[in-house]
Simulated scan of single mutants.
Amino acid sequence: MTSDTPKLGSDRQHQILRRALAERVVRIKDLAADLGVHEMTVRRDLDQLAEQGYLERVHGGARLLEKTSEELAHQLRATKNTEAKEAMAQAALGLIQDGDVVALDASTTALALARILHARKVSAIVSGLDAANVLAQNGVPFLMVGGNFHAPARSFVGAFFLDTIARLHPDKVFFSAKAFSPEIGFTDPHLPEVGAKQALIRSASTVVALLDASKFARRALATIATLDQVDTLVTDADPPKDIRATLDAADLQLIIARATP
């Protein structure tokens, strides 16, 4: 299985695309001033992004192509905090033993774990297309749980997914969230993904949350899991003192996986 998705270019082009996602239309003059580069540099970036099918060039700038916006948002999430995700994935791998059946949600953090899962003799359960692609390339046996396709996360959700995952019982599930606060737990704004993550958590013997420290003391629309539903939290930096105290009181294992400088 291979992906036909174009690879994103430089960090500057990432910034341009994030701006386009927010504003839909970007202007060369504004981008040059904000990025501190010559207008000709911005023109070249816009031309390259247009060639890759992300933007449409218009007079004085470019417009985001609607058909690519969801795919683009997913790719930009995958390229954010990559060092932290890789460090957390390595720490998570240390929690996995040969022979385990491991379930992964469709987050880009769990995808980082999928990329190195071949280091263990395991099988996996996945709901995301990208994780399935990686596992297939690396020769890791896996079961893909289908359902309604949810384009923003490139995953499967819905009634069919929920019914199927309820019949499966992995040893360990690894999931991520958009936010965490002690009062309401791990949260996410996308309701279809919330339901899928909840079902994965209910199915497993051991539940591991993968959450970079930027998401502490924040909240999103819906709760995925409360602290009493999670066994281990893997993060990339020390939580704030009040959150650390809450985690300790909950008797939750905390693993801090710092990215290598």
Rank of each mutant, 00 (worst) to 15 (best):
M1R: 06
D4T: 11
G9N: 07
R12E: 09
L17E: 01
R19S: 14
R19W: 10
A20T: 11
V26L: 04
L35W: 09
V37F: 09
V37Y: 07
T41D: 02
A50L: 10
E51N: 11
R57P: 01
G60Q: 10
L72R: 04
Q75G: 11
L76I: 14
R77A: 15
A78T: 09
N81W: 03
E83N: 13
E86K: 15
A91N: 06
A92C: 14
L95Y: 03
L95H: 01
D98M: 01
V102M: 01
L104R: 09
L104Q: 00
D105W: 05
A114P: 11
R115T: 06
A124G: 08
V126W: 00
A131M: 03
A132K: 05
A132W: 03
V134C: 05
Q137I: 12
N138F: 12
M144R: 13
V145C: 12
G146A: 09
G147M: 08
H150S: 07
R154S: 07
F160K: 04
L168F: 12
D171N: 03
V173K: 00
S176H: 03
D188K: 00
P189N: 08
H190V: 12
L191T: 13
A196E: 06
R202Y: 02
D212A: 14
A213T: 07
K215N: 04
A222F: 15
T223Q: 11
K241H: 14
A245I: 02
A249I: 05
D251W: 13
I255V: 14
